[in-house]
Design a binder for these strands. Structure first.
Length: 192
DNA sequence: TTTTGGATGTCCT
DNA sequence: GGACATCCAAAAA
């Protein structure tokens, strides 16, 4: 088991989205370590993707990190929740990959504490849920994912990967039909 | 300075 | 299936 180097992220976004499946996402806090296997991702291809925050190369304070190098964290606060993305592509090309679900691995006691009253299956089967269970927050914005307290390391290789339309972007024109969502076939922790 | 709306989750009916 | 919680940045005024 080893932390994925910066070079790992130097591949086309759609390819990286699939490569991340089965990798272990780790967050270390004062309370301890929590981690899980990534089992569901979605690609957001900046300039050509109407559903992306960076559509048409729109550069703002919020999307700024997407214009940086691949391998950094892009956290985004949505309503009452925080979402976690991995920045992809080279600098000046605003692409990223949203992690939608993980399979709990380490720090199960911590996650249970952070998700009181829920079954284990419901701890991390959604983009807002997994950040809460792992302890990822807006303070991780822009963090390089190659060192603690937040990083990704190699895991297992999924037997089969499924792909389909993305979720939660119904008002994004034809971009909503792009098959840019990937998940580990048959894994019970995918959001739906 | 004010308004608007969102890559969601949870609880209610 | 539907309402609503609750916060920040973008866009409008």
């Amino acid at each position: 088991m080893s932390i994925l180097p910066r070079e790992f992220y130097q591949k086309p976004t759609l390819e990286l989205a699939k490569a991340l499946l089965g990798c272990e996402l780790v967050k270390e806090t004062d309370e301890g370590v929590a981690s899980g296997y990534i089992v569901e991702t979605e690609a957001y291809l900046g300039a050509q993707d109407q559903a992306a925050h960076s559509f048409n190369n729109k550069r703002t304070k919020r999307t700024e990190v997407m214009f940086g190098p691949a391998g950094n964290a892009y956290t985004y606060v949505m309503h009452t929740h925080c979402l976690f993305n991995v920045v992809s592509a080279e600098p000046e090309v605003p692409e990223a990959i949203l992690v939608r679900a993980v399979e709990p691995l380490k720090g199960l006691d911590l996650m249970e504490q952070r998700r009181p009253g829920r079954k284990q299956k419901e701890w991390t089967d959604g983009p807002g849920k997994l950040t809460k269970a792992l302890g990822i927050d807006p303070g991780d914005y822009g963090h390089a994912l190659v060192r603690p307290p937040l990083y990704i390391q190699s895991g297992y290789t999924p037997d089969h990967i499924s792909e389909g339309k993305r979720i939660g972007i119904d008002n994004s024109g034809e971009a909503r039909d792009y098959p840019w969502r990937f998940w580990v076939t048959g894994n019970p922790y995918v959001s739906r």
